[in-house]
Computed example of a mutant assay.
Amino acid sequence: MQKMDWIVVPLRVLLVLVFVGLLVAQFLSLPGEFRQTAEEHPEAGFIPWLLLTFAILEVLCIQIVIVCTWRLLTLVRADRIFSEESFVWVDVIVWTMVAAWVLLAGVSAYLVGIIYFTPELRDPGTPILLIGMTLIGGVVVLTIVVLRALLRQATVLRTDLEEVI
């Protein structure tokens, strides 16, 4: 499928750059940032470490999605995207996104609870932001599920068409 090279090649370059950037963040930037936050604000207790764990797990989820996207791009170039093999990678993306969303919802609920019950932290902006991010994450997950269903329909139609031909 040579027609798709104009989009597949630049996308792969960007995926590599994002993956490398996420590795740097995961092993250098995030631990240093949260260690500094924990040292500057000892009254925060374990919250910086909770947020570090959350951030590293979310970055890991993004890395898994990047690897799956790479594999799907391989199937696109080989003109095999409408095959059962693609559903393995799409399913991994769906379940990874579900896991990332559950983590986001859990951490957001915990932090909103802390903010709500701590009078000196009662700024409505942060809970609104956390709830908004959780809602947007849910929309993304459900959109991916719909796209998976569309891929399933297209695969069935292509299989039927190949049988006719």
Rank of each mutant, 00 (worst) to 15 (best):
D91R: 01
A55F: 05
L73D: 11
V107R: 05
V59R: 03
V90M: 13
V76Q: 06
W89K: 00
T126Y: 14
V107E: 12
I131D: 14
I115S: 05
V98W: 04
I47F: 15
P124D: 08
V88F: 12
G106S: 06
E33L: 15
R35A: 15
V65Y: 08
V67L: 10
V112M: 10
S29M: 14
M97T: 01
P119Q: 08
G113H: 06
A44E: 15
L57P: 11
A38H: 12
I81P: 01
V65T: 03
V112N: 09
R71D: 11
V24Q: 14
L52Y: 11
L52K: 07
L30I: 02
C61R: 02
L30N: 04
I128G: 13
E39Q: 14
A38W: 14
G45M: 11
L103F: 07
I115F: 10
G45Y: 12
D79Y: 02
A55C: 07
L130R: 02
I81Y: 08
L104A: 04
T118R: 03
W89T: 00
W95N: 05
I81S: 07
F87D: 05
W49C: 04
G32K: 03
V107W: 05
T126R: 09
I115H: 07
Y110Q: 09
R77T: 03
Q63D: 14
S86G: 08
L30F: 13
S108T: 01
T74A: 14
R35V: 07
R77M: 07
M97Y: 01
P119E: 15
L50R: 09
Y110F: 10
Y116G: 06
V112D: 14
A78V: 00
I114E: 15
S83D: 10
G32E: 15
L60M: 12
V94H: 03
T74V: 07
A100Y: 01
L103E: 09
L72G: 04
S83A: 03
T53C: 15
V107P: 06
E58T: 06
V112Q: 09
P124G: 09
P48W: 05
G32T: 05
